[in-house]
Write a protein that binds this DNA or RNA. Sequence first.
DNA 1: GAATTCAATGGCGCAATGGCCATATAAGCA
DNA 2: TGCTTATATGGCCATTGCGCCATTGAATTC
Lengths: 109, 109
Amino acid sequence: MEPRPRHSRQRYEARARIAKALAHPSRLMILEALENREMCVCDLTELVGADQSTVSKHLAVLKQAGLVADRKEGVMVYYKLKVCCLKGFWECIETVLAENLKLQQAVLQ
Amino acid sequence: MEPRPRHSRQRYEARARIAKALAHPSRLMILEALENREMCVCDLTELVGADQSTVSKHLAVLKQAGLVADRKEGVMVYYKLKVCCLKGFWECIETVLAENLKLQQAVLQ
DNA sequence: GAATTCAATGGCGCAATGGCCATATAAGCA
DNA sequence: TGCTTATATGGCCATTGCGCCATTGAATTC
């Protein structure tokens, strides 16, 4: 059985671009916060606890990946989730973490 | 409403470590291939089309994240999926990609 | 129009990532 | 004991990622 990729390299690269956008703690925090309601950059800056410019760049990454949308209202810019499929992602991550923890504890005993 | 993180910083960092492991096209390709059956490093090296040492390092990343497990049999090392929750992840990624594509096409028209 | 506020951008430094080559390690075989 | 094969590791280099600072741009208010 010769192993063959199921999809094209471009497709895996496209998938990885999305996954990369998810691969930072601050961005995960932002995404989770936006599940409740839309928030302005100032809110998110306070939430993350980093420099405003840093948060702004994180938001640009999320927007570029198509995960959030922004809306300007006066001086403020509000961001909201653009996709509702993140639930499956959270569940997957948490499952892995729980499994890892279980194994670690088993080793200690 | 003051914005407050739902979880600790450590938790977001732990989540991000898993997400980081998913954030490379070759690793996504490997994970998808392992859904069918376990495969040795030589198979996966052929699949990915990179240097054997490169693939070995990708596998170490996946193993460290707790996504795959390895089993030695003689000279060969076989890797298999350790978690079955990746389906939710794929679906999420594909949903985002489909949505992005739809919007791009709408812009062109 | 000057001052203030919110957000985005450019720049810079530093750490992490990922690629290949070369080498090490380990198992199987002559 | 060598010899070959499969995998892992170390080294090196180029690229990327991410933090903050400083600045710019845009909207609001005085």
